[in-house]
Design a protein around this nucleic acid. Structure first.
Length: 117
RNA sequence: AGAGUUGGUUGGGCAACCGCCGCUGUUUUUUCUUGAUAUUUCCCUAGGUGAUAUCAGGUUAUCAGGGGAGGAAAGUCCGGGCUCCAUAGGGCAGAGUGCCAGGUAACACCUGGGAGGCGCGAGUCUACGGAAAGUGCAGCAGAAAAUAUACCGCCGAUGGUCAAUAAUUUUGAUACAGGUAAGGGUGAAAUGGUGCGGUAAGAGCGCACCGCGCAACUGGCAACAGCUUGUGGCAUUGUAAACCCCGCUCGGAGCAAGACCAAAUAGGAAUCCUUUGGCGCGGCCCGCGUCGGAUUCGGGUAGGUUGCUUGAGGCCCGUGGUGACACGUGCCCUAGAGGAAUGGUUGCUCAAGACAGAACCCGGCUUAUAGACUGACUCUAAAU
RNA sequence: GCACCCGUAGCUCAGCUGGAUAGAGUACUCGGCUUCGAACCGAGCGGUCGAAGGUUCGAAUCCUUCCGGGUGCG
């Protein structure tokens, strides 16, 4: 039975964990819509952090929508990922894509991340 | 039927699966933990402390049930509640507000009414107190811009000069003194309007009507109104979203408020007392805290818990009121996160889904908004 | 959460307080100077004064509401 849960232990919760990923970036996946940074952690599962700037996506409805799409893609793909701390930086124009294109490109990025490990 | 005015309701629906956050219940005992009781260890007693067992509860986990963004959640433009500062008090300053009456916890909001503007009308808009308390400003143009004056013009009766005449009278000329504000032109604005009389020409100079001011009367709680009466010949332009005056209102900070539990670290913290001085509470007065002395032993950052959703709450009915609204009976509980939850996938369906995401909570205002449903009213045309 | 500032010519700003011509520098164009160019001198071009309402005879300026950009405190 695959585990699709997304509990608090699978998120990056404070500034220190974000900072450690920024300072010790092991892997990078770039795209016109987003940038992925990853760092090896000592846990047995991956953790996710998201940064959606107000500057890039003006309306809070759009920001919330993008975060939900990213979260659900992470949730469905987490079995395939190694023990990484991943930060998801969203760039301008992400909100102009449709739901399907967004989730497709996100899972593509996660696949690339998996291949690099 | 067309054109329009003005309110109200709603803001995709259904099903399945995978997820997130509270709540309720169940089971389990593993971890942690609180309280009570019993037994027991240590300390001289009071009492405190440690261990074990039982019961009750919390927490974590499993499963089940049920709930989970808005009409604007937005802008932060007003008004409150709540919390702390002193039970938030007095004066000045400052800020706001401004037809009248009512509603409200309060308001700059709402309701009803008045006045004025716009519209054929239904309706709609209005910061709508005071310009005889004072000060300021009013470019250019125009003669003159707030004092009353005179550019063109009109007159020149009266007085002057000149001419005619026998004449000091009379007639004519001149435009010198002077009179005038009718007309012209300028301007956003020029000192009531029309008519008649009057005059040298004119003029509220006189009269009639209209307008205006004041007073009375009548109606209205009032603002205000009156084709009611008297009176004043009419003098006092505009601007107060210029200073200002008058009436009314306003203490400050904000949930990162505040309260509780409390690692590390530093050694201080609390209570009482007294005079002066400095600092903070927007400025001043008052007051409070701090620097000094005495007494006592707890205080508190990170972090955590709480504040946190039952409230000026909603719905139905009844009563009072033109209405906003108030009162009463009954029923209902309807997000509470904390790097921040409402999503995704699939299928069906229709009109193919606009604007847009709670962060302490309410009442308004303003702004954004695809559509759908619906009440009342007006105008035009036709028919009856 | 609270407090506050700024939008004027292609660019950088003044003029707003205290109302009556929209201005300066730079850029651009033309002419002069020079053998030519730069510099310099002279002239010109260029503005819905962020938007919409209101007050006023008259609004870049005063008032209100929006739009965009930015700052500070905790």
């Amino acid at each position: 039975m695959p585990n699709f849960n997304f509990e608090k232990s699978k998120r990056l919760l404070n500034a220190q964990s974000f900072q450690s990923v920024f300072e010790n970036t092991d892997l990078k996946v770039s795209n016109s819509n987003f940038l992925l940074l990853a760092h090896q952690n000592k846990l047995k599962h991956a953790r996710l952090g998201m940064i959606v700037a107000k500057k890039n996506i003006r309306l809070s409805v759009g920001r919330n929508r993008i975060k939900r799409v990213i979260r659900s893609s992470f949730r469905l793909n987490q079995q395939n990922l190694a023990a990484l701390d991943i930060i998801f930086l969203v760039r301008k124009g992400m909100n102009k894509l449709s739901f399907k294109d967004q989730s497709k490109s996100i899972s593509l990025g996660l696949d690339q991340l998996k291949n690099k490990t």
